[in-house]
Write a protein that binds this DNA or RNA. Structure first.
Length: 824
RNA sequence: GGGAAGGUGGCGAAACGGUAGACGCAGCGGACUUAAAAUCCGCCGAGGUGACACUCGUGUGGGUUCGAAUCCCACCCUUCCUACCA
């Protein structure tokens, strides 16, 4: 067979099919109540300058999964949009004098072109752009509704400020040991500012409790669990000798009797009041120094303890002991009450502090043997030993002592059970112009006035007065800033802070749903952002995919937002995304994270031009398990290209010129085994092994090509079925082949093939014979051979006899269809 | 300090407790070609053999089992997250 084989040239047909699908509206959205729905969602991209292979890695497998669901009969909704507010646009404006709006929309234009090259089945008819006023008016509407419910509030507090980005940050956007800005990596500093916050802490318990029901990776759920940081204990009120109450939180109320001093955070509001005049200079110096210190140094556990005595004493409510009040930076204002009782007998940090400043140490828990032991190291075991030096609690086993002490504290009014969370309310104010304006007006007479619903959206000004200093341009745009008070019509000023962009992405999955109001229509309080009937059909999201870096940011915020919307009566479910899959990260060819500075960035446009979209798609899914990521290997992409070439060869083979009969039964078996394998793999997002299975089938077809099997009904069934199995993974190639093989209609409108388990079974099977667990022979036998005959055949095998060496059989294990193990 | 995910050929990786290394990359040999590319066929864990046989082999050490990459215990290493959290 020396016919000239035609070459697979994807460049000749990929664009053609992309255009055809768009013209046919193949992927347009239709709410069809008679078909089961499947809402597949991939985290929407931020339109930076260029599309990255990382975007391909995030989007292609999820497109494949969505296409697969569609062929299985689901009405699949797979929307796309752009998370278009954010700092890079503003930075480009500052750096190059570009208009942030222009810059963003140009990028979106470019992204759309690059995204279309992927051949994904996105519902472009439902595209959203978060910087579009018709989108952000709803963010403002949500803000106003949340304000009504006391879920949004304004507070003067110490906040994290990024000097690089010139704005405040949410606690979630402060990363790492050195507490740097998530965006620009500048270490953050503390500032006291009046800022808007969302009361996410109201949902702390529910956000935590609902985690086990979600089909999310354990890693993300544990990260959220830790982030929420629930700890049970007691809040206890100490008093200064002067009578001022000091609240402390402890997870170990059973160690209350061991408190030998107290420590306040340097920022604690009582510090000035409790400091005696002789200690004032030293305390003030310490407070000033702590304020200057980078959190980096403060937060470092290796650092030796520092602190100052305030000169005052507190009274321990449980035993009336008078104990000194210190300030020290190892106590954080942001956790608990910012004040602790120090129990050096049972806490390593308190012990270190006590040693350094020569403070008293007292054991109030005995060891398991009753001894109190040396104070070399603390023991904080919850389960061993008993209380001592603790009044009438002496002898109480430590296991379970906490709740007993707490109950007594409540009875005697000294304290109460308390659950403390590490989670902070979500600070949403940003001192940036390229974001959703916060719909608030400050009136000298009426105070803080919400913008009326019918006046939404509060639009960003057309003209921006970008400040080289990086300061918020809205402050310097009088046409925006100066306004009339909605209440008294007097002169007033708009809020110039904008919302955290995580606000935009907290509800975007709902923004894709058919809108209830036409663009530009005025809003009212009782309005709805989307058509309730369409929402009822599509929501919630069935399958969400995206990077794990959002574990404690976006993925937490959107859960909060959904619960808040539920309580506002906007949605009737509790969780936004039922299943979540986190893909890994694609690395540069050198195994390092792709970055311009390392010069290891792979440009998807170039690779697509060289190989076509299907090869790139296949390569990315073949690298390995999707959640694992891995380096981009320019050599291995050839493997996928060869595979598609070979499928092309098989599928386009015209003439039957075979010699030899070929193994029809073998091919049929392989075909059905492949359907089963690919189905199972796609169900579990195992794209790499699905492709391997398709390669195996194709290898068998290649082998059958020169035989008389080629051109038979079975052959054609195998090629067509393989084409269907390939369709979600390689949409262009399979469409082209489907068309060339003379089928009417798109391959993407076909049903997913089903396998026949009877045809998967083999007639003759290989049985492994082991002697004492070691393989000594393989037998090819009839599949339905009886156990007795199998045993006989196994024993008759010469190599088995050699290893058995006439020793008596102690046991024979027969695993049907698999193996025989002879124990001698 | 706490947590999560990992550790299998030269490389990426497969493997319901049942023949470890499917599939692919690289490499080697061959066919085709003036030649190269492309394409096609074959070999490909280590030791050992003419070829078999056989021995070793899934981070380390134990355990459970007829049988362990897989289950259990202890430890080592890598990556990521988190952290003076009271």
């Amino acid at each position: 067979m020396n016919e000239v084989r035609s070459l697979y040239r994807p460049q000749e047909f990929e664009a053609k099919w992309q255009a055809a699908w768009a013209t046919q509206g193949l992927y347009d959205t239709h709410e069809d109540l008679h078909r089961p729905k499947w809402y597949a969602l991939t985290m929407l991209p931020y339109p930076s300058g260029e599309l990255h292979v990382g975007h391909w890695y995030a989007m292609i497998p999820s497109d494949t999964a969505a296409r697969y669901k569609r062929m299985q009969g689901y009405n699949v909704f797979f929307p796309i949009g752009f998370d278009a507010f954010g700092l890079p646009a503003e930075n480009a404006a500052i750096k190059h004098g570009a208009d942030p709006r222009q810059w963003t929309y140009n990028n979106i234009q470019n992204f759309r072109r690059q995204l279309r090259q992927m051949g994904a089945m996105w519902a472009w008819d439902r595209e959203i752009v978060t910087c579009d006023p018709d989108y952000y008016k709803w963010s403002q509407w949500f803000f106003l509704r949340m304000l009504e419910e006391d879920l949004a509030y304004r507070e003067y507090a110490t906040v994290d400020w990024c000097p690089g980005c010139n704005t405040t940050l949410a606690r979630e956007q402060v990363w790492g040991e050195d507490r740097h800005c998530e965006r620009c990596e500048t270490p953050v500093i503390k500032r006291d500012l009046e800022q808007w916050k969302f009361r996410i802490t109201r949902y702390a318990e529910e956000l935590l409790a609902a985690l086990p029901e979600l089909e999310w990776a354990d890693s993300v759920r544990t990260m959220q669990t830790h982030w929420i940081g629930r700890s049970e204990g007691a809040q206890v009120t100490f008093h200064t000798e002067a009578g001022d109450p000091i609240e402390i939180f402890t997870t170990r109320p059973d160690t209350l009797w061991g408190a030998t001093f107290m420590v306040l955070a340097p920022e604690h509001p009582l510090v000035a009041k409790v400091t005696t005049s002789d200690r004032q200079a030293a305390v003030e110096a310490y407070v000033a120094q702590a304020a200057q210190l980078q959190e980096e140094e403060r937060g470092n556990p290796e650092k030796t303890k520092t602190g100052e005595f305030t000169g005052s004493y507190a009274v321990n409510p449980v035993n009336a002991a008078h104990i000194p009040i210190w300030i020290a930076d190892y106590v954080m204002m942001g956790y608990g009450t910012g004040a602790i009782m120090a129990v050096p007998g049972h806490d390593a940090r308190d012990l270190e502090f006590a040693r350094k400043f020569d403070l008293a140490v007292l054991r109030v828990i005995t060891g398991p043997d009753g001894a109190t032991g040396p104070i070399e190291e603390t023991w904080s075991s919850q389960t061993e030993g008993a209380m001592c030096n603790s009044g009438h609690f002496d002898g109480t086993p430590v296991d379970g002592a906490g709740p007993k002490v707490t109950a007594w504290l409540e009875d005697t009014g000294k304290g109460r059970a308390h659950v403390n969370y590490r989670l902070h309310d979500w600070l949403i104010s940003r001192q940036r112009m390229w974001g959703t304006p916060i719909p608030i007006v400050y009136c000298p007479d009426c105070g803080v006035v919400p913008v009326p619903y019918e006046d939404l959206p509060v639009r960003l000004p057309e003209e921006t007065h970008v400040q080289a200093s990086g300061e918020n341009a809205l402050l310097h745009t009088p046409s925006f800033r100066e306004t009339a008070c909605p209440r008294c019509q007097g002169p007033a000023q708009r809020e110039t802070d904008t919302m955290d962009t995580f606000m935009c992405s907290s509800w975007y999955q709902y923004g894709y749903i058919e809108p209830y109001r036409k663009k530009g229509e005025p809003l009212s309080r009782d309005d709805r952002p989307w058509d309730p009937k369409a929402g009822q059909y599509w929501l919630p999201v069935d399958q969400y995919t995206g990077g794990i870096e959002h574990a404690t940011m976006h993925l937490l915020y959107t859960r909060f937002f959904t619960k808040a919307l539920r309580d506002l009566g906007v949605v009737d479910f509790d969780e936004p995304m039922l299943r979540l899959f986190n893909q890994g990260m694609i690395l540069g060819p050198d195994g390092e994270k792709m970055s311009k500075s390392r010069d290891n960035v792979v440009d998807p446009d170039q690779v697509v031009a060289a190989y076509g979209a299907d090869v790139v798609r296949g390569y990315l899914m073949f690298i390995g398990p999707w959640d694992q990521g891995g380096p981009w290997d320019p050599q291995r992409i050839e493997g996928i290209r060869r595979f598609l070439q070979r499928f092309w060869t098989v599928a386009n083979a015209a003439d039957k010129d075979g010699a030899g009969s070929g193994d029809a039964r073998g091919l049929e078996r392989k075909l059905h085994a492949t359907i089963r394998k690919v189905t199972e793999d796609l169900d579990h997002f195992r794209f790499n092994t699905a492709i391997s299975a398709l390669m195996e089938l194709n290898n068998d077809l290649m082998k059958a090509l020169p035989t008389q099997l080629q051109g038979t009904a079975l052959w054609n069934e195998a090629v067509d079925t393989m084409c269907l199995l390939m369709a979600p993974l390689f949409p262009h190639l399979s469409e082209e082949i489907w068309f060339r093989r003379g089928h009417a209609g798109s391959v993407h409108l076909q049903s997913w093939p089903e396998f026949d388990s009877a045809k998967v079974k083999r007639d003759r099977i290989n049985i492994v014979v082991q002697v004492n667990g070691k393989v000594r022979a393989t037998l090819k036998v009839e599949a339905d051979l009886s156990e007795t005959s199998l045993r006989e055949e196994a024993l008759a095998h010469p190599n088995v006899q050699a290893h058995r060496a006439d020793k008596p059989l102690r046991k024979v294990i027969v695993v049907p269809g698999k193996l025989v193990n002879l124990v001698v």
